[in-house]
Write a protein that binds this DNA or RNA. Structure first.
Lengths: 349, 349
DNA sequence: TTGTACGCGTTATCAC
DNA sequence: GTGATAACGCGTACAA
């Protein structure tokens, strides 16, 4: 055994007990370009710190060999992954997808990749995904909502990275929050249409937490004005046109007439509209409808959908701005950014 | 200077020229549990290869410290990232989102995270994203479509990882392909509705490559039957209801009547339907409409939308199955999997 | 402007 | 069942 050890010591070559990938590495590029690995690394990360001639030679080798840097190694060495994690309730819910898209664009332009994960509306799922995602050492994280399990909060805080919470607002965010008050949406919407003269109301809603908050504050306003009965139809699963029709059908079958139906999304509202029309009723005379979100189809349904406009582009963009500021070491001016909302009165209510 | 060197050599402690993250590492867990790092690693990756007692102690320390493994380091060492990259034209196009969702579920259950990127309909963008994504050393990659730039193909092949192409079909995939023939869709749809008696046709289409293929084969069939004039209205950007209405408006303004309008997506078709109805025309008598995709709202528009059903769930699931098989070293039985499509005749055509 | 020498946190290998 | 040791591929402090 001693012999082996001696051999190793005497041997110039490393022991090579393991096999790496056979791909071209920074080192092989360096060899081919006749420079030190450091120089190649610099050529990649700080091109202007390398002599033009050297740079050209290196780039040529990179081109020829098809070298692709290994960011796992780079990230480990630099303690930066250039990855931001995004956690949304659903990948196929277009309102979240749009927010993420507007978030992802500036992040990508700044050199970050987006790792997206979906968690439904369950806090436990969120906790699991957060753990999984933190093991990738993201440089920052985008969260949907402000409700998280205690364990989840602890992990997030321990990770010590910038965090943006979105789609709600709170004076005490984990780090930064960019959103709007769900409570205000419910309240203002109820007040607005009550003041317009409506006295009968109903709700078609998905079962998510944020919708519940809107519903509750909506009903609270009505209750305070003496309206205690607000027929509510819950649908479960990802909202779609069909669920909207089903939700409306239940209500209509129960004899709804002259009500304003407040929906938890434009998609559900579109379904309600379709069902009402399919029954030969007239909107808004027989049934009035208000959606939520102002998705881009809302202004183009027939009749055009009244709804609550949420500026998803601004929300996404601002979330990115704040995160990028923190990532760049710039102190963020506002820990809390309220992007507000706007009631869009169109033709269905 | 020599002194310093001597000190270093004599010193038992490492030089510590750099500062790692202060987070808890596998090594600190090992120290606290009184075992070697190797054992902790094993406890995490092969729990049954560790004595029950040791395992319990380690898990307890992990619990207390809130240790989160660093997968950058793990990935570097094991040459496995447990990451699969997904490249789609658009994050907000729900038909792709749904495919990805069905793909992501089994992948996640098998322990893989999904890194999603959007590339529009540009091959150059795809190439750029592929490079960025390969630098994360994904274990596999999911592609939309079968058209890629040469450079992109080269990189993909060089990466030497399992690849699934989707949403189209070819006998010569990069690795595996799960999809259906775009050409057949156009052909069969034209034949079907020609045989049903339609003699006037029009098209409302987005500008993407795959839609073009459908349009071309659609028109080819009609041409062969003596129908040479197929008014076509292109819309640009991500398809939505408004664009569908606009596309229809252009056609309708030009005096369309009695035509069957073949749309490149259900969303556009829904817009066409809305526009036609807003003008007081009757579907399908004045204008017939056929969509593409059979999204979940298609059966619930009023009247219900005739369309071409694409089984996105099966496509996503099969893509995952094939990829997981390859990832597990199992030889894949079919390099090419045709999930087909189905013409859904409902009430709009 | 370029090169030397570590170390980042983990896993594979092999020995015990 | 457990541990020592050497990589994995790259960034960075420091020296030249």
């Amino acid at each position: 055994m001693a012999d082996v050890t001696d051999e190793q010591i005497l041997n110039e070559e490393p022991k090579r007990t393991r096999q790496g990938t056979q791909r071209v590495t920074l080192e092989s590029v360096a060899r081919l370009a006749g420079v030190a690995p450091t120089t190649v690394s610099r050529a990649l990360n700080y091109p202007d710190k390398v002599a033009k001639k050297t740079l050209d030679r290196i780039n040529q080798v990179i081109e020829q060999t098809g070298y692709v840097p290994n960011m796992l190694a780079g990230g480990l060495a630099s303690n930066k992954s250039r990855l931001v994690a995004v956690i949304v309730p659903s990948l196929v819910n277009i309102v979240y997808a749009e927010t993420v898209q507007h978030f992802a664009k500036p992040m990508k332009e700044a050199g970050y990749e987006v790792l997206q994960g979906e968690v439904g509306y369950s806090l436990e799922e969120e906790e699991r995904l957060v753990t999984a995602v933190l093991s990738r050492r993201p440089d920052g994280i985008f969260l949907t909502g402000i409700q998280h399990s205690n364990n989840c909060r602890r992990q997030l805080l321990a990770a010590d990275i910038p965090i943006v919470e979105t789609w709600d607002i709170t004076p005490t965010p984990l780090d930064i929050v960019v959103g709007f008050s769900q409570r205000s949406v419910g309240r203002k919407t109820a007040e607005y249409f009550y003041d317009k003269g409506y006295r009968k109301f109903a709700i078609v809603s998905a079962e998510d937490q944020r919708a519940q908050i809107r519903n509750d504050s909506f009903k609270k306003v009505l209750f305070d004005r003496g309206i205690v009965d607000v027929p509510t139809s819950f649908v479960s699963g990802i909202s779609n046109l069909q669920l909207g029709r089903q939700g409306a059908a239940k209500l209509l079958d129960a004899g709804l007439h002259g009500h304003l139906v407040f929906c938890s999304s434009d998609t559900l509202a579109h379904g309600v509209l379709t069902e009402v029309q399919a029954r030969g009723l007239v909107v808004p005379d027989d049934i009035a409808i208000v959606g939520f979100g102002d998705q881009n189809f809302a202004a183009h349904t027939y009749p055009a959908l009244s709804t609550v406009r949420i500026d998803r582009a601004t929300m996404g963009r601002q979330a990115a701005n704040s995160l990028l500021a923190r990532l760049g070491g710039v102190p963020v001016e506002h820990k809390m950014l309220d992007v507000g909302f706007e009631i869009m009165e169109r033709d269905t209510a």
